[in-house]
Design a protein around this nucleic acid. Structure first.
Length: 772
DNA sequence: TCACTAACTTAGGACACAGGGC
DNA sequence: GCCCTGTGTCCTAAGTTAGTGA
């Protein structure tokens, strides 16, 4: 509870801090534009800020120590550290600090631009160098923006074009869940089977039936479809009460719960094995929400979670899970067919006459919310979604999906400016959730393609943007300096934008929401100068830890940004993601912070592939090169995963295999030597054949060994890196397709079936000469 | 300008299942 | 035929961004 309170205090303080910064931005910008730097002091004191300044002076000591907090620990050793360390300050100074923070910030903001003026003296030489660069760049920049605008207008096409595609009415077979290897093996095994041949033919027909929307030109940005028909969402099955012999116990006594209370109890019981249920926040949230759903009597009786015994229920579900695993082939087949039937019925929609796969046609079942990281809402009850909660979106003239018997939809709308089919409000955060199309659909594919095209446009523009943010590092205005450094981080380190977050989510940050405590400045570290050490939790509470040498001016700016701030203060207190994106959009239409991630990821892949692939490599070696290039991107984007639970064991097994293979090679070499000798002593056809056989065996074993060793390297390097995220979201698929074509690597080795479906547009349109 | 929201993309973990090895 | 393992798929949380109205 104390922690939460502290967190809340900090957030309130942060909010105030940003607000007061914004108020003063007006002043500082005016000053910057109309007044010489020497007058800025006057201007500020005239605006009545001086009274705050005296308040700050009263606590000059505290101010000094706060400044120390941001300094390199190496420097803290010079006697500055102790009074400034947050651990020491936290308890006894907390009240004073929270009272004075706003005042200190006011002082800081008043003096920030004054400091910049002083700094400018030191930086003048660099400024002049930068301004030369600006002049060289400004002209073409404006021109290109105009050109792009013109081009965009031209690209807008009439949505009516969809009407040219009559509804096909064809039904597709389910194919996306099939695995590549399975397909291949099946084909090999049953090559002569006429049934199989029929299936293969069906698949081929299906391939040729695929909607090549990318050949039809770009559709309207606002109107997403002309006609949309679907069956509505699939509702999860109703709750099945526990058998009578399974008891919930309270304080050692069996208690028969009402169905609603029992259902929620099962949510908790199912999770007992999980670490979640050991967390206090989870327990409290669960218990609180659970009690709300209880009957009066139950609430009166069940007052303490620790007296609740869910073990029988837990055991029951473990057994059920085992039973499911041990089902016979036939039983499993029945389930599979049922799933297939559901998919057929609910899994597709008809969009502009084309059958498109839906991404998530099943509504989320009720359960307990599992936030990631230290989420304050973990354990809360995710309620069952009723048809009355669901809004349906489809075209007016379509067959409106029927709600489950005895129910009504919340609303039926016909909005073709959005892509979703159904939506509802989830009860944890009160945010909308949607049923949308699968990534293989036209709507998603076209957007994806557009995303990579924007990133490619950035490639043309990035030099001038880089020059601009470098110029900003020496601006007279604090907010512009901060913006310049923030964009530099986003570009150089592929950081996310970092929106402000509410109190009701995990404390994670991105670039704009970085706090002073997330960086440490090292004037010198590991033989490198001006190193910034980042340590923070990013999206999904994944830790970002990186030590990066930065340019001297960035380092100086960072020192300035953290001056007079507490560890929990915003590093970039004068900027927001909205302002930052607005600036980026002015540099290039369509440019936002996240485009840099796509751009840098794709550029890295392209560069690495060019560097790491050489002719004469085997396919396996080329794949290793590809994975290494992919890995470089995943590292850049900080895509991490937990090491697989079986990692150590599987590596050990692989190493044993390698050892065994080496022994086999030794053995085979011996045999080869003997065969050579035998052939030399008594040459014959037989001995010659034997010799050749042995030579081939050695060669084959050598290849197998190499393959295993490559596998070992690949797996080791992939231990905690997730390649999938970047492959699916950041890497322009055309790079991979072109690379495969150029180096004769089967595309199946790089993309599985689902990925090939998603990137069908790229696979179809790209030739080997494509460069990002 | 700001807070708030809708709509969409990006993300990692859980889990099912194919298929290789024995 | 069974077991084990890695891969693919599903699930849904958690971001970003644009739009809106006060």
């Amino acid at each position: 509870m104390k922690l939460e309170k502290e967190k809340q205090d900090r957030r309130e303080k942060k909010k105030k801090s940003k607000h007061s910064s914004r108020d003063r931005e007006k002043d500082s910008e005016l000053n910057g534009k109309h007044k010489p730097s020497s007058k800025m002091k006057q201007s500020d004191s005239q605006s009545g800020v001086s009274s705050f300044s005296s308040a700050v002076n009263c606590e000059a000591g505290a101010g000094d120590t706060h400044e120390d907090v941001k300094v390199d620990p190496d420097e803290r050793n010079d006697g500055q550290q102790k009074s400034g360390s947050p651990e020491i300050n936290n308890n006894n100074q907390e009240k004073t600090r929270s009272k004075s923070t706003k005042q200190r910030h006011n002082h800081q903001e008043r003096t920030a631009d004054e400091q910049l003026c002083d700094e400018d003296e030191n930086l003048r030489s660099q400024s002049s160098r930068d301004s030369n660069q600006v002049q060289a760049d400004d002209g073409p920049q404006c021109e290109s923006v105009k050109m792009k605008k013109k081009k965009r207008v031209k690209e807008e096409k009439s949505p009516e074009k969809h009407d040219k595609n009559p509804p096909s009415g064809r039904k597709r077979k389910k194919s996306s869940s099939e695995h590549d290897k399975a397909e291949k093996n099946k084909k090999m095994k049953k090559d002569g089977d006429p049934e199989e041949k029929k299936k293969e033919k069906g698949k081929k027909d299906e391939e040729s039936d695929k909607w090549k929307w990318w050949e039809e030109g770009k559709s309207s940005d606002t109107q997403k479809w002309s006609s949309l028909e679907h069956k509505g969402p699939y509702f999860p099955p109703e709750y099945e009460p526990l058998p009578d012999n399974i008891c919930f116990n309270y304080d050692g006594q069996p208690v028969k719960l009402s169905p609603v209370t029992e259902e929620i109890a099962t949510f908790y019981a199912k999770m007992l094995d999980h670490e979640y249920t050991s967390k206090e926040v989870f327990q409290n949230n669960f218990f609180c929400d659970w009690r709300e759903e209880m009957t009066k009597e139950e609430r009166k009786l069940i007052k303490t979670l620790s007296k609740c015994d869910f073990s029988q229920i837990h055991k029951y579900f473990v057994e059920k899970s085992e039973e499911r695993k041990n089902m016979t082939k036939e039983e499993k087949q029945v389930l599979k067919e049922e799933a297939s039937r559901l998919m057929e019925e609910y899994g597709y929609c008809l969009l502009d006459g084309h059958r498109e796969k839906i991404g998530n046609f099943k509504l989320e079942p009720p359960g307990l919310f599992r936030g990631r990281g230290e989420h304050p809402k973990m354990g809360k009850l995710k309620k069952r979604i009723q048809p009355e909660d669901v809004t349906i979106n489809c075209s007016q003239d379509s067959k409106i999906p029927a709600p489950p018997a005895g129910h009504r939809w919340k609303r039926v709308q016909h909005d073709n400016t959005v892509t979703w089919l159904a939506s509802w409000l989830e009860n944890i955060h009160g945010r909308p959730k949607y049923i949308m199309l699968n990534p293989s659909s036209k709507l998603k594919g076209e957007k994806d393609w557009q995303k990579y095209e924007t990133a490619r446009r950035l490639k043309m523009k990035v030099d001038s943007i880089r020059k601009q943010y470098r110029r900003d590092w020496t601006s007279r205005e604090m907010k512009i300096r901060q913006r310049g450094v923030a964009i530099y981080f986003i570009d150089k380190l592929a950081l996310r934008a970092g929106n402000e977050k509410d109190d009701e989510s995990a404390d994670t940050v991105g670039c704009c929401s970085l706090r002073v405590e997330h960086i440490t400045l090292h004037r010198r570290l590991d033989a490198q100068e001006h190193v910034v050490e980042f340590d923070f939790l990013g999206k999904d509470s994944i830790r970002y830890y990186n030590k990066v040498p930065v340019e001297k001016q960035v380092f100086k700016n960072l020192k300035l940004f953290i001056k007079h701030k507490d560890p929990e203060d915003d590093l970039f207190d004068r900027i927001t993601t909205v302002k930052l994106n607005k600036t980026l959009n002015e540099s290039m239409p369509g440019l936002t912070a996240k485009v840099f991630r796509t751009f840098n990821a794709s550029t890295t892949l392209q560069d690495q592939l060019n560097k790491l692939t050489t002719e004469g490599m085997t396919v396996e070696e080329k794949i290793l090169s590809y994975n290494r290039a992919n890995r470089a991107v995943a590292i850049l984007c900080n895509h991490q995963r937990a090491a697989p639970k079986t990692f150590e064991r599987s590596m050990q097994l692989l190493q044993e295999k390698i050892q065994k293979k080496k022994e086999q090679i030794e053995e085979a070499k011996k045999e080869l030597k003997e065969a050579k000798k035998a052939h030399k002593d008594a040459p014959s056809d037989k001995s010659k054949k034997l010799l050749e056989k042995k030579e081939k065996a050695v060669q084959r074993l050598g290849e197998q060994l190499k393959k295993l060793q490559l596998q070992e390297t690949d797996r080791e390097e992939n231990k905690v890196i997730a390649l999938g995220t970047s492959k699916l979201n950041y890497l322009d698929p055309r790079i991979s397709v072109a690379w495969c074509k150029k180096h004769q690597v089967p595309i199946e080795k790089i993309y599985n079936k689902t990925q090939r479906d998603k990137f069908a547009w790229a696979i179809d349109m790209t030739d080997e000469n494509f460069q990002f």
